[in-house]
Write a protein that binds this DNA or RNA. Structure first.
Lengths: 367, 367
DNA sequence: AGACTGATGGAGAACGTTCTACACCCTCCG
DNA sequence: CGGAGGGTGTAGAACGTTCTCCATCAGTCT
């Protein structure tokens, strides 16, 4: 096995060049609603009405104001709007910019809102609960019209408090609530699909690697917990309860690598491993390579989320598709319904997952 | 070669469950500065001063106001602040959520701003120039204190106009300006490093795959252009001008795949390929696999950015490290200097890249 | 003709901050 | 003892919107 070699450089040289010209001329007054009103010869109230296409505006007025806006290149000042009405902005909480599954969700949200007047702004928090809570607060303080929280690590009570003030959709956690909407994937079903597939191939020693459910947040059914549940039930269904084992790992390459080494270097190594995220599966892939084990020859490996990396040439990872794009789009649609008060009951949407078989799974013991 | 198989499922079933309870109670008044002032028995002006730790506040006043804020759990309303002063928010324009290099930059920005009072909000645009321009406008309208634009596709004139109004740092483009700051990587040097490395291994037919420079935006030196420049100069230096060839491709798995097929299926296929992004390199990897070529046996392959995927087990891609984290941190630092008016001259920071050799490059003709 | 409608436009008060003046008090100096 | 001057606090006008009334006006109905 070749040595891994130097992988990351740390310090780079900086060359700073000071430019010549002074540019403190930050003047350039904005065009305001008052300017538009004056230019069109009407009141600001009228302009406001036209913008929000409110009731009580004649076509002639419409026309006049719209051309005035166009002529002056007017753009409403979102912060000012936020003081009274809407800001036409939707905030998304994202804990992990690196998980490509979240990129799928994001694309779904974006596509859904593309042609609306709403803008999406992303608050990228770290993994820490406090970090995330701070980001959520930041979004609320910036007067977002609605919030989409992707598998928040923020304690549930705080999310409920936020949701009481701002329309909120939670993606991932299975805990239903009458105060926020939810979009979830039936992770338990997904785990079942995988176990069924592996058992059909002849596997019996199937291990699960998933993130540790954060009980701290008081969420009863995080995606991880649902996944583990489904896994255990499926194993039981096949009479394999005794052989079930769950190992916790962070959903990152490193996390998977560590878990993989632990699982695969023992005497009774499993013949198949199911993971809660594709990235973690890749870490296990690396661990297997380190130990001289081949995939799927020695071990079958299954990811989750069916992200783009799963289908990459050298990888070809069997995975569970969650249709992140659809989840994102659905969440956005539900959120806007709430923001515009077209619905006042909380709602939950569940997506059914689907197994995508590639080359990382095979019958056990076949070299 | 096994068939690629079904890779992506499209439609998922939706199960919608309407919840029982009505939750239209979106009341819950915010705590405002007035509340704090009343509770502390002082004027709102005093509270405002304390918050901004402005001049002319006695320690006693400090104390009183701070406890009042704490007792009421006061959080300033960012939208309202935006009307007069700052919003304490930095906006980041990101065209491609999927490129992990940008995640590195983002982390750098976040870490730099972690302990400050500033919050980072990300505007995720698509690749289209109009799409991006719209996102930038959205950020400006939301009264961001400063903007970080990561390799914007927005036309240069528009960026300059924006920068005249809001402090701006451009990452990537080499075009200097006296109105915005810049953080760039010496991409030409990076390309040179790669060519030197490959030539030292014995390669002579070295091709470059990079994104098409978008002349439309009126940027003279995009990263791609600088890269191609460095490549051509290095080839020339080694007397290989005649053998140089550049092929354009989108920086995505698919883009790389297409370019790879085109380059590698011809008669005079290169013995080494240099790409402008790791993702594209992976696409070429896939193309090589499709054609039954091995890497680095038949073709050496080099990526760019040294993202996490480059070091993944099955990949082990030689790449050029750009220290995205440092770039992000530097950009954030420079931006805040500008926002707080501690500097009024435009500035450019250049980072020097570094080659990270892994297993995807070897001497040519060695199987 | 007078009263009642419905449709349309405008006045002006919010909204929660910041920030410029200015008022007040104390101390110090002539 | 009067005034200058520095240090602290406050009043109140912005900031750019939204939105609730209210006024106006042209029809329509008795």
């Amino acid at each position: 096995m070749p040595a891994p070699g130097v992988e990351r450089c740390t310090v780079n040289e900086e060359i700073r060049v000071l430019m010549a010209t002074d540019s403190s001329a930050r003047n350039a007054k904005r065009v305001t609603i008052t300017d538009v009103a004056r230019h069109a010869g009407v009141s600001t109230a009228a302009v406001s009405k036209v913008m929000r296409n409110a009731y009580g505006v004649s076509p002639a007025m419409q026309e006049r104001v719209r051309t005035a806006m166009a002529e002056l290149g007017y753009r409403p000042h979102a912060a000012a709007r936020g003081m009274r009405g809407r800001t036409y902005t939707v905030g998304v909480l994202l804990d992990n910019v690196r998980n490509p599954f979240f990129a799928d969700i994001l694309d779904g949200i974006r596509d859904q809102l593309e042609d609306s007047e709403y803008t999406v702004l992303i608050g990228a928090a770290g993994f820490g609960a406090e970090d995330q809570a701070r980001t959520v607060r930041a979004l609320v303080d910036r007067q977002m019209d609605g919030l989409i929280l992707i598998a928040p690590g923020t304690p549930r009570p705080e999310v409920l408090a936020t949701a009481a003030v701002t329309p909120t959709v939670v993606i991932g956690h299975h805990d239903a609530s009458d105060v926020h909407d939810s979009v979830v994937d039936a992770d338990d079903v997904g785990a079942g699909l995988v176990v069924d597939h592996l058992v059909a191939l002849g596997h019996r020693d199937i291990a699960l690697v998933s993130a540790a459910g954060n009980k701290a947040g008081r969420w009863q059914r995080t995606p991880e917990i649902a996944l583990a549940d489904g896994y255990l039930r499926a194993m039981d269904r096949h009479g394999l309860s005794g052989r079930a084992r769950v190992r916790h790992a962070a959903y990152s390459d490193d996390g998977g690598h560590t878990a993989g080494l632990a699982l695969l270097s023992g005497d009774d190594r499993p013949t198949a491993i199911l993971t809660g995220a594709d990235v973690a599966a890749l870490g296990i892939y690396r661990a297997a390579a380190d130990l001289g084990l081949s995939i799927p020859g020695d071990v079958s490996l299954v990811g989750y989320n069916n992200t783009a990396i799963a289908s990459l040439a050298p990888v070809q990872l069997t995975s569970v598709d969650q249709a992140g794009h659809t989840m994102g789009a659905t969440a956005a649609r539900m959120l806007i319904e709430r923001v515009e008060r077209r619905r006042d009951r909380a709602m939950q949407t569940t997506m059914t997952p689907r197994l995508v078989v590639r080359r990382s799974t095979a019958a056990p013991g076949v070299r």
